[in-house]
Amino acid sequence: MTGPVTRPLSGPAWTDAEALECAMVVPETADTATFTFRAPSGAWFDYQPGQFLTLDLPLPGGNVQRTYTISSSPSRPLSIGITVKAQTGSLATRWMLDHLRPGMRIRAYGPAGVFTNHRHPAGKYLFISAGSGITPMMSMTTWMWDSGEMPDIVFVHAARTPSEIIFRQRLEGMADRVPGLQLRFTVEETDPFRAWTGYRGRLNQIMLGLMAPDYLEREVFCCGPEPFMQAVRDMLGALGFDMERYHQESFAAPARNEAEVPVLDDVVPDETARAEVVFALSGVSAPCTETDTVLAVAKASGLNIPSGCTFGLCGTCKVMKTEGEVHMVHNGGITEDEIEEGYILACCSHPMGRVVVAV
């Protein structure tokens, strides 16, 4: 009986001058699969966890290039893997799921990218992701697991349903064996006939405080759809987090180098900037600063806006804004449709200049 075939690391590392050969396709969830590639020459793979590859895919209408985050870890250098999820109208990813099979060869370019914990070493990490944004987090977590040192990671992931949590079983298997990997999943809705004991609903400030009470001490990496990342930045900023320790990766345009990393020009209320709240129904106008809330200004002016939680959760303080702009970071107490209609939550809305409300 012969033993297992081994492939010791010898020779050069893979470069994108050589095509990749698909070695394995592993289904993860519905419309999601991991594609594992090898170098036909036997070359090994050298990259940083969290980086990405650009694939040249032979679609029927002509080759197209698409960028995918590497979900494997460089601590396992004999192969390289990407995990893809087909979105509505996704031609390239749909082609991969339907047609890319073991033995096929495609061109690939990279690896590249600056979204990696190797550039920001820390003792404690907070990974926050949604959907297929989990892929770089999986790569970085696997690297730390394989390093042989106890990780300290709070791994927060948002998905539509529990069955759509990519890598769930793999992550739970790792977390079962080390206390330093803490998994925190939240879903929009549950699967029929299957109990769900985790978090439910949109990720918010209160939920984040429960998931990672020491979030102020952690280096934060975030990846997901742009609205999701914007919401995460807003809640962290409102909680007083040092945003120099926040790092994110864009689905649409991942940065190849530091020069391509976009400047995050988020709205941050300024305690020195003057503002004003006009309570139209009461005939009261009150000067304030951007860091004041509409609710606080109302109370200071002797007006009563019914309120409950004061965290943007219960929705009791919902009022109509008729003019101006506010910076609102809520915790689910208002819907997007209500915001479109002009409603705000007074407890967590900061006036950015002159604002008129129907109070």
Rank of each mutant, 00 (worst) to 15 (best):
H118T: 12
G123F: 01
T116D: 04
W95G: 06
P77Y: 02
A92R: 04
S147C: 06
P121Y: 09
S73C: 02
M104Q: 15
T88Q: 09
K124H: 14
T93C: 09
I70Q: 04
P102N: 10
W95T: 06
V84Q: 05
V84W: 00
K85C: 13
Y68R: 05
S71V: 05
K124M: 05
T83S: 14
W143L: 08
P77V: 07
D98F: 00
R107P: 00
T69K: 01
W143A: 15
G133S: 08
N117T: 15
L126Y: 07
A130I: 04
P74N: 06
T69E: 01
N117C: 13
L126T: 11
T69D: 00
A112S: 15
D98R: 09
D146V: 01
M104R: 13
W145D: 09
A112L: 12
G103A: 14
K124Y: 03
A86C: 03
M144G: 00
L78F: 01
L78M: 11
S132M: 05
G131K: 07
F127L: 13
L100N: 07
R107W: 05
L91A: 13
Q87G: 08
R94D: 08
S90D: 11
S129M: 13
A130G: 15
G131M: 07
G103I: 13
S139K: 03
P121I: 10
L100T: 03
T83N: 08
Y125P: 09
F127A: 09
A112N: 02
R94Y: 00
N117F: 08
T88P: 02
T93P: 00
W95S: 05
G148Y: 05
M144P: 00
M104V: 05
L91T: 10
M138N: 03
M137P: 03
A130V: 12
Y109S: 08
L91P: 00
I82T: 11
P111D: 08
P102Q: 12
G133N: 06
A130F: 05
T142F: 00
L100P: 09
G148H: 10
P102S: 13
F115R: 06
R107F: 08
K85S: 14
A86Q: 14
T88H: 10
G89D: 07
I106K: 09
W143R: 04
G131E: 03
G123Y: 07
L126S: 10
I128A: 11
Y68A: 06
I80E: 10
G113V: 04
S75W: 01
G81C: 15
V114R: 12
I134G: 08
D146R: 11
P136W: 08
G133C: 02
Y68S: 08
T93K: 06
P102E: 10
M96Y: 00
N117K: 02
V84C: 14
T83R: 11
I80S: 12
L100M: 15
S75Q: 12
S147F: 02
R101C: 07
M96D: 06
I70Y: 00
H118A: 15
S132V: 14
T141L: 12
D146P: 01
P111Y: 04
H118F: 11
V114W: 03
G89R: 03
P77G: 06
F127N: 13
P77N: 08
